[in-house]
C-alpha cells in the first residue's frame, strides 16, 4: 500500500511540472503589462530608466525561461515567489486563503451528502412512482439554476424585505467560530445545491442496481426490515462509487466556490485568483493554479485510499 502511495506521488510530478510550465508561460501572455499598470497608478510620465529599474526589481527583466527556472528552484524549497504588488510571499497568502475555500467546499459537500443520499435512497425505493419522478425532475432543476443567480437573489431580496443582507466583512474561524459558520452557510448551501442533485441521481442509480442483487433478496427472505436491508446491506455497497464521484467532482466544488466567493466577498482562493488576474500578479496566478491542481490530485489520492476502508475486497488484496 505504501509503495502504491509513493508511486502515485511520483506519477504526479511530471503532470504538475507540465501544468506549471504552461501556466507560467500563459499568465505572462495576459495583455496589459504589469509595469504599465503599476506606473499608471503612480507616475504616468515615468522615464525609460524608472521602467527598467522597476522591471529589474520585480525580476521581470530576464528571459522567461530563466524566470521559470528561478521559480522552480524556489518551488523546491516551498517558495512560490512574492506577490508583485504587495511583496508578501505568495505561499503565505495562499496558506491564509486555502483553508477558507476548503472550509466552504467541505460545508457544501456535507450539505450535499446529507441531502443527496437520503433522497437518492428514497427515490430508488419508490422507483417509477410519482415521488421518484418529481424528485428526479427536481434534481435536474437544481442543476439548471445558476448558483450566481441564487447568490444575487440572496443579496437583493432579504435586504429589500427585511433589511438584512449577508455580511461582506469576513470573520475568520479563530475570531468567531459561530459567526464564521453562519457567514459561510449560505454560500455553502448554494454551492451544495447542484452537487446534492448529482449525488442524489448517482445514489438512486446505484441503489437500484444493488437492490436487484441476490444477497438483498436473501436478506429480505430472512425477514429483515427494509431499513436494516438498506442501511446495513444495500447502502454500504452503493456508496463506494459515490465516494469516487466526490473525488472526481472536487474541481467542480472549487469552481463553484470561485463565483460564490466573488458574490459574498469571501477571501478564499477564488477571490485571490480573480484579483490576481485583474492586477496581472503573475506569481500569485501561477501559485493559485498550482495549489488548486495539487489539492485536486491529493483529494483524488485520498479517495483512492479510502476504498481500502470501504471495500473489503480491496482491503484484503
Amino acid at each position: 500500500m505504501q509503495g502504491y502511495i509513493v508511486r502515485r506521488f511520483l506519477a504526479l510530478i511530471p503532470t504538475l511540472i507540465f501544468a506549471s510550465f504552461i501556466v507560467f508561460i500563459t499568465v505572462r501572455l495576459i495583455p496589459g503589462n504589469i509595469i504599465e499598470l503599476m506606473l499608471s497608478q503612480n507616475d504616468v510620465s515615468a522615464s525609460k530608466q524608472t521602467r527598467d529599474q522597476l522591471e529589474a526589481a520585480l525580476g521581470l527583466d530576464t528571459p522567461i525561461y530563466i524566470q521559470y527556472f528561478k521559480w522552480m528552484a524556489g518551488l523546491l524549497q516551498g517558495d512560490l515567489g512574492k506577490s508583485l504588488w504587495t511583496n508578501t510571499p505568495v505561499m503565505e497568502e495562499i496558506l491564509y486563503r486555502l483553508p477558507i475555500t476548503f472550509q466552504l467546499g467541505m460545508m457544501a459537500l456535507l450539505v450535499s451528502l446529507l441531502v443527496g443520499i437520503p433522497i437518492g435512497v428514497y427515490a430508488a425505493l419508490k422507483q417509477d412512482t410519482v415521488g421518484d419522478y418529481l424528485l428526479r425532475t427536481l434534481s435536474i432543476l437544481m442543476l439548471a439554476i445558476p448558483g450566481f443567480w441564487v447568490g444575487t437573489l440572496v443579496m437583493v431580496f432579504p435586504a429589500m424585505w427585511w433589511g438584512w443582507s449577508p455580511s461582506v466583512r469576513f470573520v475568520t474561524f479563530s475570531q468567531d467560530p459561530w459567526g464564521n459558520f453562519v457567514q459561510l452557510l449560505i454560500p455553502a448551501l448554494i454551492l451544495g445545491k447542484a452537487f446534492s442533485a448529482i449525488i442524489m441521481r448517482l445514489t438512486r442509480t446505484l441503489m437500484l442496481e444493488v437492490l436487484r442483487q441476490d444477497y438483498i433478496r436473501t436478506a429480505r427472505a430472512k425477514g429483515l426490515s427494509v431499513s436494516t436491508i438498506v442501511i446495513r446491506h444495500a447502502l454500504r455497497n452503493a456508496l463506494i462509487p459515490v465516494v469516487t464521484l466526490v473525488g472526481l467532482q472536487a474541481p467542480l466544488l472549487f469552481g463553484g466556490a470561485v463565483i460564490l466567493e466573488q458574490i459574498f466577498v469571501i477571501p478564499g482562493m477564488g477571490l485571490l485568483l480573480l484579483e490576481a488576474v485583474g492586477t496581472r500578479d503573475y506569481p500569485t496566478i501561477t501559485g493559485v493554479f498550482l495549489v488548486i491542481g495539487v489539492a485536486v490530485v491529493i483529494i483524488n489520492l485520498l479517495v483512492d485510499l479510502s476504498y481500502g476502508f470501504l471495500d473489503p475486497k480491496v482491503r484484503n488484496r
Binding site: 503532470t15 500563459t26 474541481p251 463553484g256 470561485v258 485568483l273 480573480l274 488576474v277 496566478i285 493559485v288
Partner: peptide
C-alpha cells in the same frame, strides 16, 4: 489520457478565467 487527466484536475472556471484573461 495523461494530458486529459492534467486538464481535468483544474476546475473549468479557473481555466476559463486564466485563458479568457489572456485572449480577452
Amino acid at each position: 489520457q495523461r494530458f486529459v487527466d492534467a486538464w481535468m484536475s483544474f476546475p473549468d472556471i479557473v481555466i476559463l478565467i486564466v485563458v479568457v484573461s489572456v485572449v480577452g
